[in-house]
Amino acid sequence: MNNLKQNITSIARKTAIALLVVSSVSGSALAAGDHLEGAPEAKHVDWSWAGVFGTFDRAQLQRGYQVYKEVCANCHAMDLVKFRNLSQSGGPEFSEAAVKVLAAEYEIEDGPDAEGEMFIRPREPKDSMPAPFANNNAAKASNGGALPPDLSLIAKARGHYSFKDLFMGRDGLTGGTNYIYNLLTGYVDEVPEYILENDHHVNEMGKEADPNFTEQHFELGDSNFNHFYEGYKIAMAAPLFEDSVEYTDGTAATLEQQAEDVASFLIWAAEPKMEIRKSIGIKVLLYLIILAGLMYAVKRRIWENVRH
């Protein structure tokens, strides 16, 4: 009987420790969003396109395309974006002639032709951005088993829409671009001190609760350390460095500049109709506000002599 009681106590204790470890290791220590003491703060970039009246900076989108093309596109596809999108209004707005040239730099398999043969031709504005790998398996094989995600919608698929966005009049899209900016600028070579301190803290707490507690240690393995990636371990090596591209418009290619440019380009790729959405939205809301005023006046007039 006593034995059973002891067993139950021990199971209960182990469960409690397991919960403690789960909540402090996978819960607090390794979850994005939670902030470890000593970790750098995520930066909120002041995006030109955020807010009710925000529009894209064409030159920035063109630079962002350059970063995507010269760096990201080596591993990431962007299947939903077509070359013709690059010349549409509300985007980078390259000229149609320039887009033809940009597209023709890449080839695509087409066909079958009249003889039933497949053939290779230069890409045209109607075609997608080229994929770097033939299929997902090929992509994984070349990237140590990790699949580089398609970037068409990445800026909307990351980051959360917060109540702050709602009340600050900001577009709900900044969560994703801030995340991308911080991720691209958040690489460090060594595991930083705050991670080691957290390990130490968790182990102390664990040992205090149970002498047989197995110590936890942050192991980087083949991954790279990033302050802003969930779990801090990311398969992708730091893609951008100072001067990893040479901007054609002469802008100094600092790491921050490139990260900001490519994040803006990616939100445009994910939401190519943002500018027209906002410009029509302002007209729609103005119309509705005036209409509401008129409706109110009519309603008041009708109810004028009725007490209710």
Binding site: P149, A157, Y161, D171, G172, L173, I280, G281, L285
Partner: peptide, 18 residues
């Protein structure tokens, strides 16, 4: 229409763009 034009994804979930 405030949501439609100025915060269209607020009530959605980012993961649904994957």
């Amino acid at each position: 229409f405030y949501f439609v034009f100025f915060n269209p994804n607020f009530m959605g979930h980012p993961d649904n763009y994957i």
